[in-house]
Simulated scan of single mutants.
Amino acid sequence: MSLEKWAEYGWLKAEASSPDEIGDLLGIVTRALKDSKVEAISDDLRFQAAFSAALTSANIALRASGYRTRVQTGHHQKTIESLELTLKSDPTLIQKLKVFSKKRNATSYDAAGNISEQELEQAIKVAEELQQGISAWLKQKHPELLKVLNK
C-alpha cells in the first residue's frame, strides 16, 4: 500500500506543505508535550496532551509527504495508520496509538479518572519518541521544510 493508493481510495488528498506549516505543527507538538508534564492538572488532561503530541507528529509526517487526511469519520485513525507508510513505524507503535486514541475518547466523552499513572507515562514516552523520530526524519527526508527553524 502507498499514500498514493490511499488518495485513490479517497482517504487522503494531495496537498503540498510549507516550512511555515511544519514549523507551526512542530510548535504544537512541543507545547502539547510540555502540557503533558504539568502535574497541577489531571492525568486525563495530561494524557490527552501527550496523545495530541503523538497525533500531531503523525500528521507532520503525512503533511511533509504531501498529503492530508480527508475530513471524515476515522481521519485520526488514518493519520495514525499512515505512520507505517511515512516513518515506516512498527505496527506495535501504531497499535499503541490506536489504544491511546480509544482511551482519549473515553476520557473526553465517557468518564473522568480512567487514566492510570502507567498509561500516562507510556503516552508521554511514546509522544517524546515520535517527536524525536519526526525531527530526525524531517532532517533526512525533507530538510527543505525545516528552513523556518533555521531563521
Rank of each mutant, 00 (worst) to 15 (best):
W6C: 00
W6E: 09
A7N: 06
E8P: 08
W11F: 11
S17N: 03
P19K: 04
I22Y: 07
D24C: 11
D24I: 13
L26M: 13
L26I: 05
G27R: 04
V29T: 04
R31M: 13
R31S: 13
K37M: 13
K37C: 12
E39A: 14
A40E: 15
D44T: 04
L45I: 02
F47P: 00
A50T: 00
A50D: 06
F51Q: 02
S52M: 04
A54S: 06
S57F: 04
A58H: 01
N59F: 11
R63A: 06
A64M: 00
Y67C: 05
V71C: 12
Q72A: 11
Q72P: 03
Q72V: 03
T73E: 14
G74E: 07
H76A: 04
S82E: 03
L83K: 06
L85Q: 09
T86R: 06
D90A: 08
L93R: 06
F100S: 04
S101W: 08
T107Y: 06
D110C: 09
N114H: 12
E117D: 13
Q118M: 14
E119A: 08
E121S: 13
E121W: 06
Q122N: 10
Q122L: 13
A123L: 00
I124V: 13
E129K: 10
E129H: 10
I134N: 02
S135H: 09
K139H: 09
K141Q: 13
P143V: 07
P143A: 11
L146D: 02
K147S: 15
K147H: 13
N150G: 09
